[in-house]
């Protein structure tokens, strides 16, 4: 049984529209105009239990709408979805006991209380018995390294610390599936890394499946084995992260520096020169057409090399490329 099964899921919103100014307001009083927004346009995908799946796309792509439907807090317009074999919007309460959710922009910890109080409260809400809850809190606080933080009122924690507590809280009732909506939003690099590490560790330790939305490609790259790219409410790509890299990371960026000044009209067959300096050059090539080896050896022949770096494009660039190829 897959953890998540989604078939032709669709969600349209109707929003009231109003022209600018007083005239527009009066007009909309008499005859309100409605606009239909198709947030999710018939997407289908599956997720295995225990999988780490990423859902990425730019803002407004429909990622959050999808995750909200999957947690049961939004009714879809049409289509089917089953999460842990339950229909989320019909069996929301039952599902709630089996999934954990973190919405990066909607804290669930009580702001003025130390996180430990919210943890204890969640223990009651999820109907754990007291001993079980205590054990679980001890385990999570060690795994997330938050023993000290738990006693501080949440309002005094940094965003990164708070987010660690949020994710830990969502795991209190041992959910089989964790749905994370933008868990790293607003975090600095170190805090992001910390969150990713703990999520991955919990996946390894307890086999909890993780569905993660993000507009930070780094989250997906660091965490997920498989990725679904969504744009304008449609799935534009779904593949293993490694395949994605192999297919779209063939474009290489090379930065070379030489000991002597180089010819300002420097060229190299099969590559595109991006920038030429006095001592160095930046170029791009496609490793499927021009082998890496040939580029490097020819660069080495061109002069005495001081430094050379070869880098992959970022996942952001990869996504841009997917969009370009799919013509959206």
């Amino acid at each position: 049984m897959p953890a998540i099964h989604v078939n032709q899921l669709r969600k349209t919103f109707t929003a009231k529209q109003k022209a600018a100014g007083l005239r527009g307001s009066l007009k909309s009083l008499v005859r309100p105009e409605q606009q239909t927004i198709e947030a999710v346009k018939g997407i289908s995908f599956e997720m295995e239990s225990g999988e780490l799946l990423g859902l990425i796309g730019p803002n407004g792509a429909g990622k959050s709408t999808t995750i909200k439907i999957l947690t049961g807090i939004l009714y879809p317009t049409s289509g089917e979805a089953r999460v842990l074999d339950l229909v989320p919007w019909q069996q929301r309460r039952q599902l709630a006991y089996q999934i954990g959710t973190v919405f990066g922009q909607r804290p669930q910890l009580w702001y003025h209380l130390p996180a430990i109080d919210t943890f204890a409260l969640f223990g009651k809400i999820y109907e754990l018995d007291d001993g079980e809850a205590r054990k679980r809190i001890a385990f999570l606080s060690e795994a997330f390294e938050i023993e000290e933080l738990l006693k501080t009122p949440v309002r005094k924690l940094s965003l990164g610390q708070r987010m660690r507590c949020e994710v830990a809280a969502s795991l209190l009732h041992k959910p089989r599936l964790l749905l994370l909506d933008e868990p790293s939003i607003g975090l600095d690099v170190v805090a992001k890394q910390h969150i990713r590490d703990t999520i991955r560790r919990m996946n390894e330790l307890e086999g909890v499946g993780v569905l993660l939305t993000s507009h930070d490609a780094g989250d997906i790259e660091a965490l997920c084995k498989r990725v679904i790219v969504i744009n304008h409410g449609e799935i534009v790509y779904q593949e293993k992260v490694s395949t994605l890299k192999r297919r779209f990371l063939t474009s290489k960026l090379v930065d070379v520096r030489y000991a002597e000044e180089i010819n300002p009209d420097f060229t190299l067959d099969g590559t595109e020169i991006i920038k030429t300096g006095r001592y160095g050059v930046k170029l791009r090539f496609d490793s499927r057409q021009t082998p890496v080896e040939s580029v490097i050896s020819r660069l080495a022949e061109a002069g005495s090399l001081v430094d050379i770096t070869i880098s992959d494009p970022t996942l952001e660039e990869v996504i841009r490329k997917i969009y370009e190829e799919s013509g959206t």
């Binding site: 009580w110 209380l113 204890a120 009651k124 809400i125 109907e127």
Partner: peptide, 19 residues
């Protein structure tokens, strides 16, 4: 009902923090 009692007492603590 136990969970609502817990919610109630948590809110009591929450409010008494600002007595």
């Amino acid at each position: 009902m136990k969970k609502y009692w817990a919610i109630f007492t948590t809110q009591l603590t929450n409010r008494l923090a600002y007595a």
